[in-house]
C-alpha cells in the first residue's frame, strides 16, 4: 500500500511542478472552446438546439482528460529510457502495485487538468444543471481518466520508443474524440456514424459526463456507467499484464 501511495504521490508532484505543461495543455481545449464554441454557436442556436457552449463544454473537458490519460504511457517510456523505472522494478514489491500506483497517479493528474479546464469553461459561460449534478459528473470523469490511463499504460509498456508511442496515440486520440459525439449530438447523424460512435469507448464517457452535467444523454447514463466500468476493469488487467511482461 505504501508503494502505491508513494508512486501516486510522485505523479502528482511531477504534475504540480510542470507549470509549463499545465499551461500548454490548456491551449488545445481553449481553442476548441473559444473558436468552435463561439464560432458554431449561431448555427447551433438557429437549428433550435440551444446553446452550443453548453453542449460542447463537457466534450472539451473530456478531451483534456483523454489526451493527458493516453499520454501517461509516454512517462512510462520516459522513465524506462532514463532508468527511473528500474529502481521500482527491483524493489521488494509486486509489479502490480507499481502499475496501480503509476496508473492512478497519472489518472489523478489527468483529472486535475480536466477540472482546471472545467473552471475555464465556467468562466467562458458554461453552467451545469445544478450543484447536485456535480458528484455524478465527477464519477464519470474519474472513469474516463482510469480507462484511458490504463490504455496508455498498456500501449506504453508494449512499445519501445517514444516516436512510435506518439504516432500510435495521435492516431487513436483524434478518432476517439471526433467520433465520440463531443462536438455534435449523435441523435440525428447518419446510421454509419452512429454505429461508429457506438463502438468508440469515449462516446460513453462523453455522454455520461454530459448527461450528468446538463441532463442530455444519447445512450443513457446507466449504459454509459456499465460500459466504462467493464472497460476499466478489462483495460487495467491488460495494463497489468503488459506491465508484468515488460523488461527492466
Amino acid at each position: 500500500m505504501k508503494a502505491i501511495y508513494i508512486l501516486w504521490l510522485r505523479e502528482l508532484k511531477r504534475y504540480s511542478r510542470s507549470k509549463a505543461q499545465i499551461a500548454t495543455s490548456l491551449g488545445q481545449p481553449l481553442l476548441y472552446l473559444l473558436v468552435l464554441g463561439y464560432g458554431l454557436s449561431p448555427i447551433f442556436r438557429r437549428s433550435g438546439e440551444g446553446s452550443y457552449l453548453q453542449f460542447m463544454a463537457p466534450g472539451v473537458i473530456t478531451l483534456t482528460v483523454l489526451s493527458l490519460s493516453m499520454f501517461s504511457g509516454a512517462s512510462l517510456l520516459w522513465d524506462r529510457q532514463f532508468g527511473v523505472l528500474r529502481e521500482t522494478l527491483v524493489a521488494p514489491v509486486p509489479r502490480i502495485y507499481i502499475m496501480i500506483g503509476r496508473t492512478f497517479g497519472s489518472a489523478s493528474t489527468a483529472l486535475l487538468q480536466g477540472l482546471l479546464v472545467g473552471v475555464v469553461c465556467v468562466l467562458a459561460g458554461f453552467r451545469p444543471l445544478s450543484l447536485q449534478s456535480l458528484p455524478l459528473a465527477l464519477v464519470f470523469l474519474v472513469l474516463i481518466a482510469v480507462v484511458f490511463t490504463a490504455i496508455g499504460t498498456a500501449i506504453g509498456s508494449t512499445l519501445k520508443d517514444m516516436q512510435t508511442f506518439q504516432m500510435v496515440t495521435n492516431l487513436l486520440v483524434a478518432p476517439l474524440f471526433f467520433l465520440s459525439g463531443a462536438l455534435f449530438p449523435l441523435d440525428d447523424v447518419p446510421a454509419a456514424l452512429k454505429f461508429a460512435a457506438a463502438l468508440d469507448p469515449l462516446s460513453y464517457g462523453v455522454d455520461g459526463f454530459r448527461g450528468a452535467l446538463i441532463g442530455e444523454a444519447h445512450f443513457g447514463m446507466k449504459l454509459c456507467f456499465a460500459v466504462l466500468s467493464v472497460l476499466g476493469i478489462v483495460m487495467l488487467s491488460a495494463g497489468a499484464w503488459r506491465f508484468a511482461k515488460m523488461e527492466a
Partner: peptide, 20 residues
C-alpha cells in the same frame, strides 16, 4: 535510476516507501 525531477530527499523518500 534517480528521478531527476525530484529532490535528493524525495528520491530517498520514494525508496523508503518502496522498501516499506
Amino acid at each position: 535510476t534517480l528521478d531527476t525531477d525530484l529532490t535528493a530527499w524525495e528520491n530517498m523518500e520514494i525508496h523508503a516507501y518502496l522498501y516499506g
